[in-house]
C-alpha cells in the first residue's frame, strides 16, 4: 500500500507553497502579519522531508504530516492545516474511492471549522473549502478525478470570492473594513492544496 499518492500530494503542495511563498506573504502583509508564505513554506518543507514510503498507509502519513505542520508552521495555519491533515488522515478510506476521499476531506473541513470557528463569509480558507467540498460531492459519482477537478474549480472560485469580504476571524479582523479588497491568504493556499490533490490523488 504505502502512502505514495498522499506523498505525491504533499510534495506537490510543498512545491506550490515554496514557489508562491512570496505571493502568499505579500497577501498576508496587506491584511495580516506578513508570515503566511514563509510559515507554510517552513512547515511544508518539514512535511516534504518525511518519507512517505515508510508509512503503512496514506492515513498514517497524513496524520504525521498534520502533526509536523502543528509544530513547525508557527502561525494560525499550523493548527488549522495540522487539524485538517490529521482529520483527513484519520478518515482516509482503506480502499481509495471518490466517496471515501470525499468523506475524509469533509472530516478535514469540519476540523478546521471546529478549530477556527469560522463560518462561510468570514474571509477565511473555509470560504474556499466549503464550496470545494460541495462541488466534490456533486461530482463524486463521476469518479475521483472529476470530483477533485470540480473541487479545485469551486475552491478557486471561493478563493476569488474572498476578495470583497470583510475579515471576521484572525489577525485580519482587526483591520475591519480595510480588509476588503485583498484576497484571503489562507483561502489562496488551501486552493493550492486542493489543486495539488487534483493533480495527484486520482
Amino acid at each position: 500500500m504505502g502512502a505514495d499518492k498522499a506523498g505525491a500530494w504533499m510534495a506537490d503542495f510543498a512545491a506550490q507553497i515554496h514557489d508562491n511563498a512570496d505571493m502568499l506573504t505579500d497577501l498576508d502583509r496587506q491584511i495580516g502579519d506578513a508570515d503566511h508564505g514563509s510559515n507554510m513554506d517552513r512547515g511544508m518543507k518539514a512535511v516534504a522531508a518525511l518519507a512517505a514510503a515508510d508509512f503503512p498507509d496514506s492515513g498514517a502519513f497524513l496524520k504525521k504530516a498534520g502533526m509536523t505542520l502543528v509544530s513547525t508552521v508557527g502561525g494560525a495555519s499550523g493548527p488549522l492545516y495540522g487539524t485538517f491533515l490529521m482529520r483527513v488522515g484519520g478518515a482516509w478510506p482503506v480502499e481509495d474511492s471518490a466517496e471515501g476521499i470525499g468523506v475524509a476531506l469533509r472530516a478535514g473541513l469540519e476540523g478546521i471549522i471546529q478549530r477556527g470557528k469560522a463560518e462561510v463569509g468570514d474571509k477565511t480558507m473555509v470560504d474556499a473549502l466549503t464550496p470545494a467540498l460541495v462541488a466534490y460531492d456533486a461530482a463524486a459519482g463521476e469518479g475521483t478525478q472529476a470530483a477533485l477537478d470540480a473541487a479545485a474549480k469551486a475552491c478557486a472560485e471561493g478563493r476569488d470570492g474572498t476578495t470583497p469580504l470583510v475579515a471576521r476571524k484572525g489577525r485580519a479582523s482587526y483591520l475591519g473594513e480595510r480588509s476588503a479588497g485583498t484576497q484571503d491568504p489562507g483561502a489562496t493556499s488551501v486552493t493550492m492544496l486542493i489543486e495539488a490533490a487534483a493533480r495527484t490523488l486520482a
Binding site: D35, S71, G78
Partner: peptide
C-alpha cells in the same frame, strides 16, 4: 522565530 506550537 515568531510562532506558536501546540506540541510545545
Amino acid at each position: 522565530t515568531f510562532g506558536t506550537d501546540a506540541t510545545a
